[in-house]
Simulated assay, not measured.
Amino acid sequence: MAGRRRWSTEEILETAAELLRTGDAESFSVRKLAAVLGTDSSSLYRHFRNKTELLRAVADRILVAAMDGYRPEGDWKQRITATALRLREAFGQHPQLASVWGRYGSGGTGSRLVMEEVLQALWASGLPDEEIPARYHRIVVLLASLIASEGGFDTLTPGEYEQGVEQFRVAVLGADPDRFPALAHFAREVRPLGDDRRVAFDEILAAHLAQIEAAIP
């Protein structure tokens, strides 16, 4: 009798990514992945020790894809901005995986590519060497948080999004002006959290880089 097919690491990761695109990291399991592949969980554990390691590898594939073909151009701020927008675009195509990166991080080739470029850009900025690691860390935390937040919105169904917007309107427009005077005053101008995300992303990143620039001797 023919044995079960042996799946390559790349095939496992591709199938896991597709499974995550139709679900989420919380409901994802190695057992479900094995069932889709028509094999047993033990065969997958030969490639990955646990679910977390597998999820990190899937997220790393997105980082690799984001940096594919990248060539550094411009000054240090332009390089970091270009890298950030590549990550945003890549995870925008796989929103379910954005939270995986934000939660689990990655330690593979994609992670090293991103780390190298951000560190190289900061190195070229003129910052003292001793400040660069902390600045790098803050940039990555900022990007992971913004991208994971966007991914959360992008995974909402149209019905869920409309329900959230309606609840926002009720909460804001119906605010008691005696208890929430500022909210009542700005009620018609305040917008739901998911609005203008691209503008917010650009402005927050630019403000952070300007703060770093101000610290350069």
Rank of each mutant, 00 (worst) to 15 (best):
R191V: 14
M1E: 05
V58W: 02
M115Y: 13
G126T: 09
V64G: 04
S41M: 10
A34Q: 03
R179C: 07
L173P: 05
I139M: 07
P72T: 12
R88W: 14
R4Q: 05
F153E: 07
I139R: 03
A65H: 09
A17H: 03
V64P: 00
P72N: 11
W123M: 10
E203R: 15
R4A: 08
E131D: 10
G110Q: 02
I62E: 08
R112L: 13
D60Q: 14
F28Q: 02
D68A: 15
L209G: 03
A182V: 14
R191I: 12
L63N: 06
V172Q: 00
R103F: 13
L37K: 01
T22H: 08
Y70W: 14
L209T: 03
I139E: 00
V165S: 06
A144M: 12
V30W: 05
L193T: 08
A16W: 00
L143A: 06
L143T: 09
A121F: 07
L37S: 01
E73H: 14
E89L: 14
L183C: 09
D195Y: 14
R197W: 08
Y161M: 15
L122M: 05
E10M: 08
A182E: 11
Q93C: 10
E18L: 05
L85F: 15
D24N: 05
D176S: 13
A84I: 01
P72L: 11
E10D: 15
E130G: 10
G92L: 05
P181R: 13
R5P: 03
Q96G: 00
V58Y: 04
P181C: 12
I12S: 00
A206H: 07
P192T: 11
R61H: 07
F201A: 02
L143P: 00
F201Q: 01
A148G: 11
K32I: 03
L33T: 02
E26Q: 10
A25F: 13
Y136Q: 02
S111P: 01
T155K: 06
I80D: 00
R103K: 14
R61N: 07
R135H: 11
V199W: 06
Y104H: 15
E166K: 00
I204P: 01
E73K: 15
S8C: 01
Q167E: 07
I80P: 00
V141T: 13
H185G: 08
E26K: 13
L142A: 10
K51L: 09
E18T: 08
E73A: 15
P217A: 12
G110F: 02
L173S: 11
D40N: 15
A59Y: 02
Q167D: 05
A214W: 10
V36E: 10
N50Q: 07
E130L: 13
N50F: 12
A200P: 05
R49Q: 08
T157N: 03
L173E: 10
A210E: 15
W7V: 03
S27A: 11
Q167R: 14
L127E: 06
P133H: 08
Y70S: 10
N50A: 09
A124L: 14
S111R: 05
G151R: 01
G102V: 04
R56P: 04
E53T: 15
S29M: 07
S27F: 04
H94V: 03
L55P: 04
E11R: 05
R6E: 04
A59H: 03
Q120V: 14
W7F: 15
I139T: 14
T39L: 02
F91M: 03
R86A: 04
S42M: 08
T157A: 06
F153Y: 14
T52R: 13
F48R: 00
S27E: 06
A187I: 12
S149I: 13
E150C: 10
